[in-house]
Structure formats: structure tokens, C-alpha cells
Nucleic acid binder design. Structure first.
Lengths: 337, 337
DNA sequence: GTGAAAGCGCTAACAT
DNA sequence: ATGTTAGCGCTTTCAC
């Protein structure tokens, strides 16, 4: 660390004051005379005084850093959420420390340790796909560090959360597909342990019921990566009961689904409609462009950071758990009728 | 901050030792007897002792946090670099504090202030497009905080940098285009003030010269966003001297270029070849898929973090400025002949 | 309205 | 091999 920053003491010495007076003057403490205040603040400005945050936090036992745990920074959705968190944190003068779990349980435990070691005052977390135990998250709570989950919430821990309204998003999308005449709508989801996948499936089934369409097991698959899409979808297209629509868990799957469908010779959307989830960059460059459910990631980031900071500062006083729901938006493009 | 963490003093009291002995024992100081060491470390483990990093850093004046300034987290390339930085930092037990400038000069200044306030021991920065003055970067150096630029380097400051070999990347790509028979190759670049754009243009021109193709001004445009692409490209296609290839500054422009070209009725790659730069997600979902230059963002992140940490720890002792070059790779897909 | 003194949790001379 | 002391830069009683 550099040592050329001046300290309170330096200012005190230079101005023939005590360190405490300088400290008060800098903080606009009303006990200090206007003269002294100006004197001190001018001197500080002139000499580029920067309070030593470390010392401040050590003394006051308050820390303005919050930690974030994400599965992957590189995903459009998560980087959008991060941008939202960063924006809100900055507004409130909080710093953010980012860790990524790479969808790995062990790594996620390490992230928690790192953040606790850094003495963050709160943590925003989105769970990795491989996490089945929650001791590490419990440890956060046990240490009285605030914890808010976002998107991939952990159902094993009773704490605040911010989630996309996956149920409603799926409902709206599938309702739309059905209303355009699709009858055999496939659902390409994730591990049913993940609430985001499960909730969307419930929305999917509700929409089907609404349109008096039977839920068919063979049209529901676990298919949430490029690899799976390229393996599973061609098979589905070969069966007698070919789907006439695919509702996909993310844009990537939707994009590869689109490729697979076109490769077999079907037209999109005339023969088969396709709908994604995320509404990221991909949706605009495929041919045809992709209809998708926007998850409002930026807003989710802001909401989650807001909630966490309110908890840290004791502004959110609700005793029980707070759950916030982020509304989705169906963005129609050319991959659906 | 939570207060249930125990401190060195607590351990000392419980074990009837002095704080310094405990401190030494925890750090495996050879002066301490094996017995005491075990005693202390076991006690610490059992009571989940976590050293207070704030106090440690205040005392030792060393800080293991590094700051990162990026234009936009959400871009594929930058989020890839971030992932690399994060991986390397974690390996070395450094934390990273991330700020984004949103391509805004004023915001970038604020980022620098935030990071200096947080007393980071080094900063990794990629400049915003709108930055024309460098006082804020100079301030970092003046404060003896290590500074390493990556990708969008600032030529106004004499400090370490890590850049993509843009010249070579462009050379290879345009050389390839020319070797497949393209004669009127357009260059869609950024502001020529940006070294990344300028260097690519030099590579572009070298390749043309190598193939004895004249450089034509009207084939060189500033076109680095979706909006510009949708405005400029149709015009270029209407002129008599229609390009038979586009070499684009990023994948996004390439993808929209592809759309524009197809919209007018040209076939890709038969009539017109298109090449992007970044090699991100987009390249696999367009039709045809996009040939692109991979910038190895993850490797760049690792390299930049490595260099910065070496500087911080005094392992990189070279007096002058260190410049590292990240090799590119031309990834051929179906948008080029 | 201002100063003196103590202490946050840790480390590092300097002692013994 | 261990303890004592002092101090990093700051805030916060408690004085006057």
C-alpha cells in the first residue's frame, strides 16, 4: 500500500488541532465551529486526504463491502444481474467483491470462505447447479452475515430471496404458443431440483390445462445445454408425435433447437415454433430471430442489492423472510407464429 | 460486521498465552514450539477463528485486493477476461473489486476514486471509448498503486500493458479472405484513436498489400455498433463497387452485417464473406455460422492479473514498462469461403 | 468547541 | 520459546 496519503494526524499536526477535532470536522459534526470545519476540509481537499477505510471499518466494525457469488460471470443473464448489483451498490457507496463458483459445489464453498474472510457485511448468492448441501450457506447466516439469494435460490435455507417470476413467464409464453395454434408443445428444462426449472414447468402445465391440452411426458425433457440440445432434439423430431413448438429453458438451447429443427427440414415458425428464456444477445442474430422471455436481470440485480443493503443497515426490519418477484416479459420475434 | 468471530486475544486468554505467541503460532513461526503451535491451531480451528483481514492490512500496510475497471461487464469479451482475472487472483489469494465505466469518462474517474479509496494495491484497467484525458490514471501511478492496462490500453500513460495481438489477428483474417479470392474487402472499425482499431487496420492494410490489393478509402468505415451497422452497411451494398468481404471489429457488427447482406439478397459466403472478431457465443448461432478471430480473453485476464500481482509483490522487477501480447486465432466457420 | 485517552485486532521490535 | 510494548488510522467517550 502506498504511504503518501496523509492521515488525520498529519492534518491535525499541520493545523495545530487534535485528531478528534479533525475527524469531527471532516464528518460535519455540528459541535465543530464553521471556521474550523472549513479550515480542515480545505486543507484535506488540497492535500487529497483519503480516509483510510480499513482503519475506519476496524474501528466502527462496519464494513461497506458486499460479496456476490455467481455460477458464471460469462453468462449474459448473470453478467446483467452483476451490472445491476454494481449500479445499486455504487449508488450506496458499497463495494462489491465477486466470486464465481463455475457451477461447482466445492468451489462455491471456497467462495463463501473467501467472502467471510474478507469480512463482507452481506452476501448475494445464486446457487451452482451441483450444490445439494447447504452447510456453507448456513454458516453465512450463523455468522450474522446477511444473505440474499437471487435467481437460483437455495430452498434449504430460510433467508431473503429475489426470483424471476418463472411460473408466470412460462405461463405467458406457453399460453401464447397455444393461442397461435400449437398443440404439441415440448418443454426443454433443467434438473427438476432447481426451482427455476420446476416453476417454469408448473407454468407450462398450467398453460396447457388452460388450453385443454394434455400434458405428455415424452414432450418434457431435461435439456439445458448445447450438447444435450444437439443430442436430444433430433430424436424428438424423428418420433411420430413430432412437437409443433419448443419452450426452452434458455436462449442457447433455443438457438441450437432452431438449428436442429431447420436441419431436419422443418420451417420455423410455420411448422414449429420456438421460444427461449433470457432475451439476450443471441435472440437478435439467429434466423429467424428468437422469441424469448426477458428476465429483467438488471432489475433483479438492483432489487437484490437494495434488499441486502436494507438488511445490513437495518432498514428492512421485517422479521420473517422477504421474497421479491421480478416480472417477466414475453418478447415476440420471428421464431413463433 | 458480525462480532461472534473470536480474536487472537480471545485465544490468548483462553490458552493463557500472549497475543503475539498466538499470532506466531498461527503463522507457523519456527520460534514457536510444536506443542504450542498445535494447541493454538487446534483451538483456532475448533472455534472457527478467522483472522481479521482489516486489522492485518492496517497493521502491515499490505492489501490483497486488486481493482478492475472494465467498460461493460455484460460484453462477452470483458466477462471472459474477468473470469480469467478472477481465476488467477483467487489462486494467489487476492480479492477483486470490480467497477464498470459504462464507456463513460466521468464514470471512469469515479471508478478510479472508488478503488483508490478502497486502498487496493493494484488496478487492472481497460479504457472507456470516450476517455481522452488521463489525469485519473496518472493519479493511480502517482499514488504508487500498481497499474496494468489490458486490451483497451491508454497510450497516454507509461505503464505495463497486456494487449491482444490485433495487428496479427487482422492480418491473418484478411490474408485468409484474400487467399480465398476476395478482392474488395471492407474494414468496419472503431474510432481510429483506439489502438485496438488502429492496429487492426494496419494488419488489414498489410494483408492487402501482401496480396497486391489497393487500399480503398471508401471500403474503410467507422462502424462498431449494431446501430451503425444497420445504417452503414446497406449503403455500402448499394454502391457500384460492392465489397465482396467484410472484416468486422466485433462479432456483433459481423452478425448484423450478415443480416444486412442477406436482406439485400447476397449469398454468404458465395457472394460475400464475413469475418468477426472475439469468437463469442454469437458465432455459432447465426446462419451461416460466423468465422471470427478469437482473442483468448480468459488467457488475457490471467496474464494481466499475473503481471499486476508480480508487480505488487516485487517479483516483476523490470524497471521499464512491460508489454505482453496475447496471440489470436482465426476460427473458420461458414461465413467465409 | 476542542482535546486527551482508549481501543478496534493485529504485528513486530525488543526484551527476557 | 514466549511476553511486553507500541502503534497502524481511525472514532468515541469523557473531560474541560
Amino acid at each position: 500500500m502506498s504511504k503518501q496519503y496523509i492521515t488525520l494526524k498529519d492534518i491535525a499536526k499541520a493545523l495545530n488541532l487534535s485528531a478528534s477535532t479533525v475527524s469531527r470536522a471532516m464528518k460535519n459534526n455540528p459541535a465543530i465551529s464553521a471556521e474550523t470545519r472549513e479550515l480542515v476540509q480545505n486543507f484535506a481537499r488540497k492535500h487529497k486526504y483519503k480516509p483510510n477505510i480499513l482503519a475506519m471499518q476496524l474501528r466502527t466494525k462496519r464494513n461497506t463491502t458486499i460479496g456476490v457469488i455467481v455460477p458464471e460471470i460469462v453468462h449474459y443473464f448473470f453478467s446483467t444481474v452483476l451490472a445491476g448489483i454494481q449500479a445499486e451498490a455504487e449508488k450506496e457507496n458499497y463495494n462489491i467483491l465477486i466470486c464465481q463458483s463455475n457451477e461447482d459445489y466445492k468451489k462455491e464453498i471456497k467462495c463463501v470462505q473467501t467472502l467471510l474472510d474478507a469480512r463482507v457485511s452481506g452476501i448475494l448468492a445464486s446457487q451452482s447447479k451441483t450444490t445439494k448441501e447447504y452447510d456453507h450457506f448456513q454458516e453465512i447466516v450463523d455468522n450474522n452475515v446477511q444473505l440474499v439469494f437471487f435467481d437460483r435460490i437455495c430452498t434449504g435455507i430460510n433467508t431473503d430471496k429475489v426470483v424471476v417470476d418463472d411460473y408466470e413467464g412460462a405461463l405467458k409464453a406457453v399460453d401464447y404458443l397455444a393461442s397461435t395454434g400449437c398443440k404439441r408443445i415440448a418443454f426443454l428444462g433443467s434438473d427438476s431440483d432447481l426451482p427455476i426449472s420446476n416453476n417454469r414447468r408448473m407454468g407450462y402445465e398450467s398453460a396447457l390445462r388452460k388450453h385443454k391440452i394434455k400434458v405428455i411426458k415424452s414432450l418434457i425433457k431435461e435439456c439445458d445445454t448445447r450438447e444435450l440440445a444437439q443430442k436430444i432434439i433430433p430424436d424428438m423430431l424423428n418420433e411420430s408425435n413430432t412437437p409443433d413448438a419448443f419452450f426452452c429453458i434458455n436462449d442457447e438451447v433455443a438457438a441450437y433447437c432452431l438449428q436442429a429443427v431447420k436441419a431436419v427440414g422443418f420451417r420455423v415458425p410455420e411448422d414449429i415454433s420456438i421460444c427461449g428464456f433470457t432475451n439476450g444477445y443471441l435472440t437478435e442474430v439467429t434466423e429467424p430471430t428468437l422469441t424469448s422471455v426477458d428476465q429483467h436481470g438488471f432489475e433483479m440485480g438492483i432489487t437484490a442489492a437494495r434488499l441486502l443493503i436494507d438488511r445490513i443497515e437495518g432498514k428492512e426490519t421485517k422479521k420473517g423472510v422477504v421474497s421479491k418477484l421480478i416480472k417477466t416479459e414475453l418478447v415476440l420475434r420471428n421464431s413463433t407464429r
